[in-house]
Write a protein that binds this DNA or RNA. Structure first.
Length: 748
DNA sequence: AGCACGCCGACT
DNA sequence: GTCGGCGTGCTC
């Protein structure tokens, strides 16, 4: 690979020379750049890195990214093709953004062209114009933005609401897509002075920064957190905001955003998943009447593109986005906020396996702005960074208002008779909560009816044909389903091995517990929340509304209950089985279980009523579990960090995981063995494996992996570089699909 | 990753 | 005699 930054610098100001070529990154898995002759009549000295260039590539054309201008290393200049056209007058990425992409490509060992491509929204990747489209946009005026929906004109109210949700106005085509008559209400809104038509220039609709007075005073801890960040707005610093659920992290974010906006700068806010955006979006919009855009995968492509460009061009001041938004260029960067910092969703799990959290930190450093990462249950990595002085810890120790912390009680279920996984003590507390008119929440980390279908006569178990996994019984859809490849088949009546008609469900899933609860509490209004029951778009929102309207007595579900949603009437939380998470091959299992327990527990007792958390376990004396229950998450984390240090595991060492898969069983292991042999030559990096993946066969393919670990980053990265460079010489490379995962969060 | 080129089985 | 299977090799 060439040195793009250097070549740009050395060649700027040079006389245009016939020898100079464009170094272009092509969005293909190719670990080098390609040289092109400049298109005719282009002033090379004015070209900057990041520029989108249309080039012929193979038999077709593609959008590439300019890395630099320089001397070509291709011997025969006649082989060079001219670039077709420059797609932008100036790069859409600023030089700091390009620097981050170059860093990310090196750090994650991922092809530069693909890294550049991921920074852009799909429309721009495909060569779409970045000029504001010349369309008619209906947008709100400042008055319209502040207006309350008219009660006597429901159509106008609807349109007003739709427009208030779209920061930059809506094109007529999008309005037509709503499927109802918007033209008449639009006329009415325009007559009221609330809305206007604009041609193209979405930027004309800029409400400016108006701040609604803060509803209440900050407590001292919040105030000092805000002050700490405000004190370093002029440079880079990474802050870890550790605050229990309900301690008012969002209020800290809001105050900081206010201040940054007041200085005329922009704020990027990153969240782990789409589900959490509407909630935070509502709070930001209510308080800061400024142009806020959202960016996540649930958005239509034109809207995403517009949001991206709005931040790029400075017409938006706040971006609220998920992982993929971390590369969005900012014209006036001021602050990055990253909420739920511990969440594994920030790590991309396929293709370009970057950590949005770590990229965000690097970006803040490069941009010389602060970054604030918040969590009630910080990752051990981030706590390690606090220990080493890389991050500054800010703590919000108390809940705001009168809410008391929840009380934990461990239920030892070893010698108990359980009713479909529910202990008598838990059932009694559910009944009591209902009698008081309060809500109960049950957490079961497995969806479906039961995870296993077993023959009572011969012990045969229903397994997936394509994976090393058991089929999960889904009672509602009357099917067996593989949660790893999606395979589905009807529930059998007779055992295929011994022909006995005595197949029984084994183990617990959300559906089964729901059924048991319905039998126990016939009058209770139950609501089940898992991936199956929220599949339909919008159903999650409907469910949350029902819960908060008090139309639910018992709420049960999986992980998704743990994430961010407020359930003010829940006073009882039951966690059915935490044992699964405590004993696992993955060294991070304990950390994740602890985070899950604390996050689920945080749903309880948010108002004046204190919460009770019942934890069913067969391991009541597990030391880390006891530490967590008795002394809280910080003490748990400290103990867990000591264990990590003793075992030389992250964050006290660094890892890279090479995965390989193929259609046959041997090739992946053979391929990884070749890599392990290459690694054996040096002492600083430990090569563990190859070992079969925890699920060796998935979707009909065989998977194996090689873990590389080192006390220092440098030798690890040098080795990874060497391994990738040698791969073309390994014959098995052609027959496997491989990936390199730097700082893996899941060891499978 | 695409996509072309290239050498061996079931169809008009 | 052809259409098409996916193995291998290249893309400035």
């Amino acid at each position: 690979m060439t040195e793009p930054l250097d070549s740009l610098l050395t060649n700027s100001g040079l006389e245009p020379s016939a020898d100079l070529v464009l170094k272009i990154a092509i969005p293909r898995p190719l670990r080098r750049s390609f040289d092109y002759l400049p298109p005719p009549g282009v002033d090379l000295s004015a070209l900057q890195m990041g520029l989108r260039v249309e080039v012929p590539f193979g038999s077709r054309k593609t959008v590439g990214y300019l890395l630099g201008v320089g001397q070509s290393e291709v011997a025969d200049k006649a082989l060079l093709k001219p670039a077709l056209s420059l797609l932008d007058r100036e790069p859409l990425l600023f030089s700091d953004d390009c620097a981050i992409l170059l860093w990310a490509s090196r750090y994650y060992h991922y092809p530069i062209g693909e890294v550049f491509a991921t920074a852009f929204p799909v429309l721009l990747r495909q060569g779409g114009s970045a000029e504001p489209a010349c369309v008619r946009l209906l947008g709100l005026t400042a008055a319209g933005r502040a207006a309350a929906p008219p009660t006597r004109a429901p159509r106008q109210a609807m349109l007003l609401q739709v427009l208030q949700e779209s920061a930059l106005g809506m094109a007529t085509a999008e309005l037509n897509a709503l499927g109802w008559d918007w033209q008449n209400p639009a006329r009415a809104l325009i007559d009221k002075g609330w809305a206007i038509y604009q041609d193209g220039e979405a930027e004309a609709i800029k409400p400016g920064v108006a701040v609604t007075a803060s509803p209440h005073q900050l407590n001292p801890a919040q105030q000092s957190a805000v002050d700490a960040v405000l004190d370093s707005l002029d440079g880079y610093r990474a802050f870890l905001l550790e605050g229990v659920t309900g301690s008012g992290k969002t209020e800290v974010y809001l105050r900081l955003a206010e201040q940054v906006l007041a200085r005329g700068a922009q704020v990027m806010i990153l969240l782990p998943e789409i589900n959490l955006t509407p909630q935070l979006e509502g709070r930001f919009r209510a308080r800061l009447a400024t142009s806020l855009v959202v960016f996540h995968s649930g958005l239509a492509e034109p809207e995403r593109c517009r949001a991206w460009l709005a931040l790029r061009n400075g017409t938006a001041s706040i971006l609220l986005g998920t992982r993929s938004a971390v590369f969005t260029p900012m014209s006036r960067p001021g602050l990055i906020i990253l909420d739920e910092e511990h969440d594994a969703s920030f790590k991309q799990q396929d293709h370009f396996r970057f950590s949005a959290r770590d990229v965000a930190v690097m970006r803040a450093r490069r941009l010389r702005i602060p970054i604030l990462m918040g969590s009630a249950t910080p990752s051990l990595e981030s706590l390690g960074n606090v220990q080493s002085g890389r991050y500054v810890r800010l703590a919000l120790p108390e809940r705001t208002g009168v809410a008391a912390p929840p009380v934990f009680r461990v239920i030892d279920i070893r010698k108990q008779r359980l009713n479909e996984g529910l202990s008598d003590a838990l059932l009694a507390q559910i009944g009591a909560a209902m009698a008081r008119g309060e809500q109960a929440l049950l957490f079961i980390n497995r969806r479906g009816f039961a995870p296993t279908l077993i023959c009572h006569a011969c012990g045969w178990v229903a397994e997936c044909q394509r994976c090393d996994a058991r089929l999960v019984i889904h009672a509602a859809e009357r099917c067996l389903r593989c949660h790893h490849c999606g395979h589905e088949e009807p529930v059998l009546r007779d055992c295929p091995k011994c022909r006995t008609a005595d197949l029984r469900p084994l183990g617990l899933g959300t559906e089964r517990v729901e059924q048991a609860l319905a039998k126990q509490f016939p009058k209770a209004r139950l609501l089940r929340m898992d991936r199956d029951s929220t599949r339909r778009k919008g159903s999650l929102e409907d469910m949350l509304d029902k819960i908060n309207a008090g139309e639910v007595d018992i709420l049960l579900g999986t992980q998704m209950l743990a994430k961010g949603h407020h359930f003010p009437n829940v006073t009882l939380v039951g966690i059915l089985d935490v044992d699964g998470g405590l004993f696992s091959l993955d060294f991070r299992a304990g950390e994740r279980t602890a985070q899950l327990i604390v996050q689920v527990a945080g749903r309880a007792g948010r108002e004046e009523r204190p919460g009770l958390v019942l934890l069913q376990t067969r391991q009541p004396e597990h030391p880390l579990l006891r530490k967590l229950i008795r002394e809280g998450y910080p003490a748990f984390a400290e103990a867990a960090l000591q264990e990590r240090r003793a075992a030389e595991l992250p964050p006290y060492s660094y890892q890279a995981l090479c995965r390989a898969e193929a259609n046959d069983e041997q090739t992946p292991a053979l391929f990884l063995t070749r890599l392990a042999e290459l690694a054996a030559g040096q002492t600083e990096v430990l090569a563990l494996g190859p070992v079969p993946a925890p699920m060796p066969r998935q979707a009909g393919r065989w998977r194996s992996q090689l873990l590389l670990q080192s006390a220092e980053r440098k030798p690890l990265h040098d080795l990874v570089e060497i391994l990738i460079r040698h791969m073309p010489q390994i014959p098995e490379t052609k027959r496997v699909r491989w990936s390199m995962d730097i700082d893996p969060v899941d060891l499978f």
